[in-house]
Design a protein around this nucleic acid. Sequence first.
DNA 1: CGATTATGAGTGAACGTTCATTCATAATTG
DNA 2: CAATTATGAATGAACGTTCACTCATAATCG
Lengths: 211, 211
Amino acid sequence: MSERSFIIGAGVMGEKDKKAVIMQAALELIVERGFHGAPVSDIVGRAGVAAGTIYQYFENKDVLIRALRDELAENIRQAILEGYPSEKPIRTRFLFFVENLLSYFAKNPLHFRYMEQYFNSPYGISLRRDKAMEKRDSGDIVHELLSEGISKRFMKNLPEVVLFSLALGPMLVIIRDHVLGFITLDDMLIRRITAACWDAVKETQPAAEVP
Amino acid sequence: MSERSFIIGAGVMGEKDKKAVIMQAALELIVERGFHGAPVSDIVGRAGVAAGTIYQYFENKDVLIRALRDELAENIRQAILEGYPSEKPIRTRFLFFVENLLSYFAKNPLHFRYMEQYFNSPYGISLRRDKAMEKRDSGDIVHELLSEGISKRFMKNLPEVVLFSLALGPMLVIIRDHVLGFITLDDMLIRRITAACWDAVKETQPAAEVP
DNA sequence: CGATTATGAGTGAACGTTCATTCATAATTG
DNA sequence: CAATTATGAATGAACGTTCACTCATAATCG
């Protein structure tokens, strides 16, 4: 082998992957056992590195936890914005957004569980709004969607945070059930769930035009 | 003072209250800082008792945590079943149930935050279904409501867990926002939110009779 | 180009801290 | 004055973090 490399399990890794291996191990363990059930000693054990190695890449455990959050948030952001039909009617955009988000989490259950745990922990409480709803990337799109929906009377005249909860709250429960094996999500079911969420937010005295 | 008593803050307590004081202190601290941010030393400190006293009432910290869950679950059960209109139409029962639950948590934010943390932690994962949906008290009522709604075609023909998520998922987000001060829930708003949840679950091709 | 030195990623035993829990003792009760 | 209840210093396990050290590789040298 022409450059430094090493073996973990059956695979051969270039040195650049070590950080990623640690992050993956942390993701799995934290999802399985929670933040305080995933000591650094177990994380490095699963990653196949020594205790000290983790501090080559992360200043401390908190930094690792936040780095994981940032990476997942970026993945999610890219996944749900790809192909977003900015020019289509509101209903189309709404369905696209919710369907994509459901789909992403159905396919990446660990990402969902991690973010859920993060935002339900003392780490995440203060940052919740910044990341989920405020002036940032995907949050912008949600805000744009809902405020336009309200002003054009395609959606119910409720506070934006309420419409947000009607649109995405069911997803929190459904993905949890999907992860835990109480239900299996396929594309058809995802489409029907998304349509039901639209029923929740849409104005029941419809405006002159159909959205 | 004629019987043994002691002072906490401005109040005087008989000894029978000591267990309750410990539980209240644990509730507050765990909601504020999470399970691993609420060490026994802090709990007894807030309760105004010595470290050892907690073990007079609870075998260990886990037992305390589960006892709190049980007490809150019982409170919630009683609150939402009081005055439940078993003989009224499905829609009436649905609105009553969801409204009552929203109302209860809006008035008892600590209870909500505790249960949320509990069920999102390794403690609660395995028990989630037993408590929230299965053959038990309030769970029975939800199951009865949804299965009747499906079979009589007043609700969408979706898996029960999906209808459950459409009915109660938004509440998870809204109460969190209420607790964190992003929104203020009053009776009027609660009624409008509940109505929107009904829109989500109700069959859009209505049956012959109005429910 | 072979030999020598420098580098820094990787290591893991050891450290200090924090935690839940215990128990000998003290205080309070009827 | 026995019995019950409360106390808090002491304990040991578990944790995150540190740091002196190793060694494969890269850089430099003669």
